[in-house]
Simulated assay, not measured.
Amino acid sequence: MIVALLMGRGGSSGFPGKNIYPVLGRPLMEYPLIAATRSKSIDRIFVSTDSSEIKQIGRKYGAAIIDRPPELCSSQALGEDVYVHAYDHAKKSLGEPIDLVVLLMCNAATITGDLIDEGIQILRCHPEYDSAVSVSSYNMWSPLRARKVGDDNLLHPFVPFTAFGDPKTLNCDRDSQGDVWFADMGVSIVRSYNLEHLEEGLLPQKWMGQKIYPLKQWGGLDVDYEWQIPQVEFWLKNHGFDNSDTNV
Rank of each mutant, 00 (worst) to 15 (best):
L100S: 02
Y83H: 10
A86P: 06
T49I: 10
M105K: 13
A63D: 11
A77F: 09
L94A: 00
E71G: 01
L94D: 03
I45F: 01
A109S: 04
I45M: 05
K92G: 04
I57V: 15
S52W: 08
R59Y: 07
G113T: 04
D50L: 07
S51V: 12
K91S: 07
T110H: 04
H89C: 12
S74D: 06
Q76Y: 13
S52L: 14
G58Y: 12
N107P: 04
L100T: 02
S51F: 10
A90L: 04
C106K: 06
T49S: 14
I111V: 11
K92R: 10
A108F: 04
L100I: 08
K91W: 02
S48A: 15
V84H: 03
G95W: 02
K91R: 14
I98Q: 05
P69G: 06
V101N: 01
A90R: 00
I98W: 06
G95N: 00
L104M: 12
H89S: 12
K55G: 09
V84Y: 03
G58L: 14
D81T: 08
S74W: 02
D88I: 13
N107T: 10
G62W: 11
M105C: 10
G79H: 07
K60S: 14
I65N: 10
L104Q: 01
M105R: 13
V84F: 06
L104I: 08
A90D: 03
A86Y: 06
K60L: 15
Y87G: 05
L100R: 05
V101P: 02
I54E: 00
A86M: 06
L94T: 03
K91I: 05
P70S: 02
I54T: 09
C73T: 15
D67E: 14
A108E: 04
D67V: 07
D67Q: 11
C106N: 10
E80V: 11
K92N: 06
V82P: 00
T110N: 05
T112P: 03
P69N: 04
L100W: 05
S75N: 09
I57H: 06
Y83T: 09
D50R: 06
P97V: 00
G62H: 11
A63G: 15
A90G: 08
N107Y: 02
Q76P: 01
Y83M: 12
Y87W: 09
D88T: 10
G95R: 01
F46P: 05
H89R: 13
C73S: 12
